[in-house]
Every structure is written in structure tokens, then in C-alpha cells.
Design a protein around this nucleic acid. Structure first.
Length: 861
RNA sequence: GGGCGCAUAGCUCAGCUGGUUCAGAGCACCUGCCUUACAAGCAGGGGGUCGGAGGUUCGAAUCCUUCUGCGCCCA
């Protein structure tokens, strides 16, 4: 499942990471022979898009939203969407995203829109959707509700009033509360203290009187109260503060709403002198009154965050308003169980703790938004009831149906559509995107169609920041409407951060230009860069350097192609000997490939994609390029034998298929360059190489021994400043193990070729003037060819001796620890057999090595 | 206040079921090489005892407890 990006989005780092991961999974699935489907699309993103449209209207069309009708606005909004929306889908193609483009969906497509409405009606009929009070951000100037995003918080200077509420029946005893809003004390319904606060415990349960009006209210105890803040006593005003509202609900307290839509005190306010005044004027008025009555203890200067309307800059008033809610209790239960039972598996799995914590504390979901861009709520009210006082609600998919309901309910057959008013609000964006896995396969309108084939889907890839907004709700919708999970696995990506660990965002301006990155490093380079350090769930600190690695890797791949394609191929008979010698390298490379594929497969199964990529990177760069190609590379201006050449092309092509999910462009290109391909034959449609079959560890160990000898001789060249290309001689002490090591055809050739020696020969005695070294448990001698008398060098015996002594010391310590382990009865008794076996082998290898080292030391002496 | 996570090389991070594929990768650094695929490269090299303390175990970077220092989410 693709998380649909907002229709307003342009490609940024988060999208690139997210979609690269999805593309890797989808390409791998395709190569594994599965019918992989990846539905792309966009989300209408009500708030973000509406804000953009409003700005566009203001700047381009010189129009204000307030001057437009809803219909006009929507027309403009669709115009905007057609012109500027969905750019991101084009940009995703550049990244290589192999979506099923003909399936592109949009959460406001007519059919999708209908699904959302259908679900709303259905939930309402099932009693899982209701209308209730909720605290919203109210702009008293614009007289509109603001979304959280439209409220700007800034520190401002304010005053904290300490006001004494007298205990009922007492002239002196009382409780002092601290508030910034003395004009709201007439809406108070309680005073709350912390249950463990000794200062007030004796007052809990008693009544205190609101100053100036002397209305009694109870003193209650609640954990919410901060003992440190103010006086530790909090006035509870459910109508004018969200937290107070919560406490009021818990204690079943009444709600007294004293402020009208325009910010003026209304008749609910029992203190007559301020009724009709603006809230700030009222505050000014209350101050001297409290002072005169002796209730005002003191006023403190106070800095606090004040929320102001983005549009009018007026101070936002928390206000209770009627909103639509989805009842979460029943929906949440199966969704929680699904994750706990691993019906839906999270990667990394610790996110299920976060999920559980949230799901066990579910609050009902407010799904109405005071916007126009979105699915309009399909609820109608009788106009005669008056705005916001609706007692008759008709929820239906169409206005006609609602009218029908209204006629029936009122018994008035004469009602017309003009007597009804449709709810002005639209639905929360997530109330459409939670249906994505069902709706994109037409699951609601054609329940027996392709939804049957594609649902449940396999994997969802998304950021953990929307685990509640989106993931949890899709799971809920899945069980509610399909009776089963929407996906088997959820892969959580981390956030892309910059070098200072800040989240990359447009407002900070710290996000690299995604398109420029693609230009600079190529899509494959960027994909490599993103993936090489992106373990599931972990944030990635993005650095261009990572993409540089990716680009360099592409370059490496390309150069290897140049090398291989530059070879002349010979079919002549004398090359069969060459082929026999090369067979060892070919066989080794195949085993190594198989071994790595095993790791890659395991990594894919557990979504360790960066591990899989790094395994392939190492295989291709080190094993294939640095070792294998050098082993089989023909001499200057010499041809390569046909057998080895063909085997190499096959290996190379298979490597490209294996790497293809990660770097689709270059692998496709190289795959085509390697051989003539029939039309329609593509790398992306091949079969992923199989890791099955037993791995011949013996050949891998053997090759390890050879490459160690090569490395040791290169080290010596470095030390003695011997030119890499200068041909020397290499002898190995004639022992049973040495004979065995070099009995295989081609083994000596490989070592001699890579170490640039004329050959590797067995010798019974140390050749004079040779440099000794030990590799594995063999003793080697390295010396110039006899004719190369010009070469002037002296063996640094002291240094050689020191090196051997150091190595001896290490090996002896090593053997000692292994011996101690094996002598430990409890170890031998309780450790699994293969561990013990391994320890025994370590011991014998170590002992053989010590023996060789000791002999080597003697020779030097 | 509740919850989640992190601490391993100079930097960014891997390290799965506890055991020589356990201390690893890339970058950075040092030495030598423009070697007839590749200087965006090649060949070598130095560098960490796995945040501190305790415990479980024959055996701990890995499991448990605790402390310290960070980061995030919810309130």
C-alpha cells in the first residue's frame, strides 16, 4: 500500500525514502514471481490544500474565501487541483517508482467520495457515530472555528490574578486560586486541588463561594492539578477551558457558557455589570470590583503562551461546539487485538508498544472539520430548529433521502429541501484515507470484484508519526468493513533528519532539493544513499555523502561492464587449460553468491533492507570486482576462454537481477548490455536468483586461505616498497597441509597471479635471502627472481622477528583461553555440540599456527 | 505525570536466537600507487572493550536490575 501523499506535495526526502522502500519491496516481489500490485494516488488533504487554495485565490485571483459561495470555492479548488495537484506522482517516476499507474486514485474521486459518505451513514445507523460537544478554537472576530494548525502560539505578557473564594458560612476562611481570566469566574462550577496536597485536604467536599455573586461551588480533588503552579488551587470553568472541560466531564459538573460567539459576556453570566461587554473589557471591569470587595489577593506579572488566530490575530477563545464523533470503543478493540496477536505485524516490533498505549486510551474521534474542501458531512437539520440548536438530524447519502426521512419524522409531507440545512462541515482527511485499502479496489461498490483478490494487502510502508492518524484507523476500518486485517505487515520508516538532527522540513529550509539530488547523483545513487543507512524505524541523518557512495557504486558497476565487455573471447583449443584453471574462481564466486543470497533473503523476510543492500554491495564490490574479476582477468592483450567468459556474463547478469530492486536503472541497463536480449526481455521481469542448495563451505574456506596469502604478500610489498607489478617468487614450506592446500587445479595460479609471482612452489628448505611470512598455518618465502639482481633490498630480520613474536604471543593467549574453556567441565556439559566442535577446531588450528610460527622464528635465528 | 526509544571507532550507524562470520560497515584519517575497467579508483594501515555499577550464565555488546545522559510521543 502506498501512503497517498498530499495532492499539494512536491517530492521531498521523506517521500523519497518511503517510496524507495516500497519500490524495493514491490520489485523484489515481482522478481520472486508474484503478481505485485502497487496502487499510487494522492490524498485531498483538506486543511493543507484549502490553505493553499485560499492563498492562491488571494494572490492570483484577488479573491477572498469569505466573498465566495461554497460552490464557487469548490470550483476554484478543483481548478487549482487540476493545475497544481499531483505533481508528486510525476516526480515519483523519476525516482523509479514502479507503480500500477493506471490505478492512480484520489481520495476525492467520485467513487471514493461516495464510499466515504456511505461509511458515514453506515456508522451513524450502527450507532458508532454521534454528534456531541467539543472544545474548539473559536475566532470571535471571524466568528469561525479554527483548526489547530490555524492557531499561532506566542509568548505574551499577561497577569495572574490571585482571588480568594470564601468558604461557605465563613467570613475569613477560604481558598485562593490563581487565574489569568478573572472575567470567567462566573462560569466556575468547582475549585480543584490535588488529592495529596495537605494545604487543602480539609476543604475537599466543602463549598466555596464565587466572589461578587456568592454562588456556592464544591471543592474537588483531582490528580490533574499541578501543586506547584499558582496557589495549587484551580478554578474549574468547563465552558471556557479544554482541561477544565475534561475535569468537568469526569466529575459530572454542569457547564455554564458565559461568552457569546462574538466574544461578549452573555446573560448566563450572573454578574450583571459586565453582561454585554467584550471579554477584555470585562476583565478590566472585574479587577477593581474584586479589589473593592476584598477578594483580590494580588496580581502577578506572568509570561505565557497565548493562541491567536492566524487570520485575524484575535485571541482564540476555547468554545464548546457541536461536532461529529466516531465512537472508538468498539472499533478499537479488534484493531488492538490484531496487532497484539501479530495478525498485523509491525517492523520494528517495538512500535506495537506505542500502538497499544494509544489504543488502550482511545478517545472518540472528532471527524468534522470547519472547511469546505473535503467530503461534506451528509447530515441535514430542520431549519426551523435554528443554527446549532438542531434537535432533528437526518443522516442520509443524498438530500432526497434526508428529505424523505424528515417528512416521515415530522409527519409534514409539505417539507421541501429548502426547509433543511446540510451540515456545513467536511470530514477529517483521515476519515477518507482510512478506507484506502478497501476503496482503491472498489471494495464497497463491488464486494465480489478484485478486492477479493487483493485484500488483505501485504505490506504498508509509512512513517511512525502517523501510526495513530492512519495506520490504526485503517486497521479499524479493515475489521469493521472487511472483517479482516487490511495488511499483514507494517514497515515503519524513520524520519529523515539533517546533520543537526532536525526533522527536515520546508519551513526550516533544511531539506535538500530532492530533484536536485536526483540530478546530481542519479536516482540509483540517491536510492542507495537513502537505503544504506535506513534501518527500519530508525531516523536517518541525511548527508549528501551517502548519495555520493551510491553514485560511486554505479560507477564501479559500469566500469566492471567496460572491463568484461572489452575482453576478446577465444574458442581455440589451447584455452581449455585456462578454463580448467579458472573453474576454481567461477565455482567460488557461485558459492559466495549463493551464500550472500541466503543473507539477502533472510534480510528481506525481516525487512532489513539496508542489511540486504550492504550484503550485495560487499559481494559485488569486494568479491566480484576486487577478487573474482582479477582472478579471471586475462593477461595483457590476451583473450579469455569462452567457458569462463560465459560463466562470468551469467554471474554478472544474475548479480544485476539481485541488485535490481535497489538500483533499478543501472542494473537494467547493464543487464541489457551484457547480452543480446529479445524484445520484451527485461531485468525487472527476470526471476530473482535462488539461494537454495547447499553451500560448499570447503571451497569458500579454501579461497579464504589463498586470498590471505595474497594479502600477506601485498603487505610485504608495501613494507619493502616493492612495486606491485614487479614479478617475484613465492615458495611454500613443503608440508602435508601445504600439499593439500595447493593440490586443486588453479589454486597456485590464482595466488601467483594476484600476488604477482611467477608461481607458487613447494620447497623443503628456506631459500636464501627471502622474506618469510606465515599465512594460515603455512610458512611462505617471498624473494626476487634470480635474474632480477638489480633489486636491492635487505630483509629486516629484527622487524620480522618482532612481528612473529607478537603474533605468537597472541596465538598462545588465544589457545590458552580455548583450552581453559574446553577444560571447563560445565562448559563441555552444557554447551551445544556444534559450539564445542568449533572450539576444538579453533584449538587445533591455533596449535598448528603456533608450531609454524615457532619454526619460522627458528629459521630467522 | 504516563509511555516509548537511544547510548558501540573521530563522525553516522549495523550487530538477529547469548557462543570466532563478534567487536563490524561507510565516511574521515595515515602510507604507497595516475598498474593496460575504475583516482568517483587500487593496495595496505591505525583507531573502540560496547555510557557507569551490579546481577543471571560455563560464557554477556547481546538477558535482568539500577544509575547517568540524551531524544520523542501523550497529558
Amino acid at each position: 500500500m502506498i501512503p497517498p501523499p498530499n495532492v499539494t506535495d512536491v517530492l521531498h526526502m521523506g517521500h523519497m525514502l518511503n517510496n524507495t522502500i516500497q519500490d524495493i519491496l514491490i520489485r523484489k516481489a515481482r522478481l520472486d514471481g508474484k503478481n505485485a500490485c502497487w496502487v499510487p494516488g494522492t490524498d485531498h488533504a483538506s486543511i493543507a490544500t484549502e490553505a493553499k487554495v485560499v492563498r492562491w485565490l488571494r494572490e492570483e485571483k484577488k479573491l477572498r474565501k469569505a466573498d465566495l459561495s461554497r460552490e464557487q470555492f469548490m470550483e476554484y479548488a478543483y481548478q487549482w487541483k487540476d493545475k497544481y495537484g499531483g505533481i508528486i506522482l510525476q516526480q515519483l517516476r523519476r525516482l523509479g517508482a514502479s507503480c500500477d499507474w493506471e490505478r492512480t486514485a484520489f481520495t476525492m474521486d467520485p467513487s471514493y467520495y461516495n464510499d466515504v459518505i456511505r461509511v458515514f451513514v453506515d456508522l451513524y445507523r450502527k450507532g458508532k457515530l454521534y454528534r456531541g460537544l467539543r472544545m474548539v478554537n473559536w475566532d470571535p472576530e471571524a466568528k469561525t472555528v479554527l483548526s489547530n494548525e490555524e492557531v499561532l502560539y506566542n509568548e505574551e505578557q499577561s497577569e495572574l490574578f490571585h482571588i480568594k473564594y470564601l468558604l461557605e458560612g465563613s467570613a475569613t476562611e477560604g481558598i485562593v486560586i490563581a487565574t489569568q481570566r478573572p472575567e470567567t469566574i462566573f462560569a466556575d462550577v468547582a475549585v480543584a486541588v490535588h488529592p495529596k496536597d495537605p494545604r487543602y485536604s480539609h476543604l475537599v467536599g466543602k463549598n466555596v463561594l464565587i466572589p461578587l455573586i456568592d454562588r456556592p461551588i464544591p471543592v474537588i480533588a483531582d490528580e490533574y492539578v499541578d501543586v506547584e503552579f499558582g496557589t495549587g488551587a484551580l478554578k474549574i470553568t468547563p465552558a471556557h477551558d479544554p482541561n477544565d472541560y475534561e475535569i468537568g466531564q469526569r466529575f459530572n459538573l454542569p457547564i455554564i457558557d458565559t461568552i457569546d460567539d462574538d466574544g461578549r459576556l452573555n446573560s448566563q453570566c450572573a454578574y450583571a455589570p459586565i453582561v454585554g461587554m467584550d471579554r477584555f473589557a470585562a476583565r478590566k471591569h472585574v479587577k477593581p470590583a474584586l479589589e473593592a470587595s476584598g477578594h483580590l489577593v494580588k496580581i502577578e506579572d506572568y509570561r505565557t503562551k497565548i493562541g491567536r488566530s492566524e487570520r485575524t490575530n484575535s485571541v482564540v477563545e476555547p468554545k464548546l461546539s457541536l461536532q461529529w464523533f466516531v465512537r472508538m470503543s468498539e472499533l478499537g478493540e479488534p484493531a488492538l487485538r490484531a496487532v497484539l496477536d501479530r495478525e498485523v505485524q509491525f517492523f520494528p516490533d517495538h512500535f506495537q508498544n506505542l500502538y497499544r498505549n494509544w489504543m488502550e486510551n482511545l478517545r472518540d474521534w472528532c471527524i468534522s472539520r470547519q472547511l469546505w474542501w473535503g467530503q461534506r458531512i451528509p447530515a441535514w437539520y430542520l431549519k426551523s430548529d435554528g443554527l446549532y440548536k438542531e434537535t432533528h438530524i437526518f443522516v442520509a447519502e443524498t438530500a432526497e433521502e434526508a428529505l424523505e426521512q424528515a417528512r416521515e419524522a415530522t409527519g409534514n409531507k409539505q417539507l421541501s429541501i429548502n426547509d433543511l440545512r446540510q451540515d456545513e462541515d467536511v470530514l477529517d482527511t483521515w476519515a477518507s484515507s482510512w478506507l484506502w485499502p478497501i476503496s482503491v479496489f472498489d471494495g464497497f461498490s463491488q464486494p465480489d470484484g478484485e478486492i477479493k483478490y487483493y485484500y488483505p494487502t501485504s505490506v504498508l510502508v509509512t512513517g511512525w508519526d502517523i501510526i495513530f492518524f492512519w495506520v490504526a484507523r485503517m486497521i479499524m476500518a479493515g475489521y469493521e468493513y472487511m472483517g479482516q486485517r487490511p495488511f499483514q505487515a507494517v514497515y515503519f520508516t524513520g524520519m529523515v533528519r539533517d546533520q543537526k538532527r532536525r526533522k527536515m522540513s520546508k519551513s526550516l529550509g533544511n531539506s535538500p532539493d530532492a530533484l536536485k539530488l536526483l540530478d546530481d547523483y542519479g536516482a540509483d545513487g540517491v536510492r542507495y544513499g537513502l537505503m544504506s543507512s535506513a534501518a527500519a524505524g530508525g531516523d536517518i541523518l541525511f548527508d549528501d555523502k551517502l548519495c555520493e557512495n551510491g553514485r560511486n557504486f554505479c560507477n564501479k558497476l559500469w566500469n566492471a561492464l567496460r572491463l568484461v565487455k572489452g575482453w576478446q573471447v577465444s574458442d581455440s583449443a589451447e584455452n581449455t587449460d585456462e578454463a580448467r584453471k579458472n573453474a576454481l574462481a567461477v565455482q567460488w564466486m557461485r558459492e559466495k553468491f549463493k551464500q550472500t543470497l541466503g543473507e539477502v533473503d533472510a534480510n528481506f523476510r525481516s525487512f532489513r533492507l539496508s542489511e540486504a543492500l550492504l550484503a550485495l554491495y560487499g559481494l559485488i564490490w569486494d568479491d566480484f570486482c576486487s577478487w573474482y574479476l582479477e582472478m579471471i582477468k586475462p593477461g595483457f592483450e590476451k583473450p579469455i576462454d569462452r567457458v569462463t567468459y560465459e560463466a562470468t556474463l551469467d554471474l554478472y547478469a544474475d548479480l544485476m537481477v539481485a541488485l535490481h530492486p535497489f538500483m533499478p536503472f543501472i542494473t537494467e541497463e547493464i543487464w541489457h548490455q551484457l547480452r543480446e536480449r529479445a524484445a520484451g526481455q527485461d531485468c525487472m521481469m527476470q526471476q530473482y536468483p535462488k539461494s537454495n542448495g547447499i553451500i560448499e563451505n570447503e571451497i569458500i574456506d579454501r579461497m579464504n586461505a589463498y586470498t590471505n596469502v595474497v594479502s600477506a604478500s601485498r603487505d610485504i610489498r608495501n613494507q619493502y616498497q616493492i612495486k606491485p607489478k614487479e614479478e617475484w617468487q613465492l615458495f611454500v614450506q613443503n608440508t602435508d597441509s601445504a600439499k593439500k592446500l595447493y593440490e586443486i587445479t588453479g589454486s597456485g595460479n590464482i595466488v601467483a597471479k594476484l600476488a604477482h609471482t611467477s608461481s607458487v612452489e613447494l620447497t623443503d628448505s628456506a631459500p636464501p635471502n627471502s622474506i618469510q611470512f606465515v599465512s594460515g598455518s603455512e610458512q611462505y618465502y617471498f624473494l626476487p627472481k634470480p635474474e632480477n639482481t638489480t633489486f636491492d633490498f635487505a630483509v629486516d630480520t629484527a622487524a620480522e622477528k618482532e612481528k612473529i613474536l607478537k603474533e605468537l604471543e597472541y596465538q598462545r593467549g588465544f589457545v590458552k583461553s580455548v583450552e581453559a574453556k574446553l577444560a571447563n567441565e560445565r562448559f563441555v556439559k552444557s554447551a551445544p555440540p556444534h559450539i564445542i566442535e568449533n572450539e576444538r577446531k579453533k584449538l587445533s588450528d591455533g596449535l598448528a599456527r603456533i608450531k609454524t610460527l615457532e619454526e619460522s622464528l627458528e629459521k630467522i635465528n
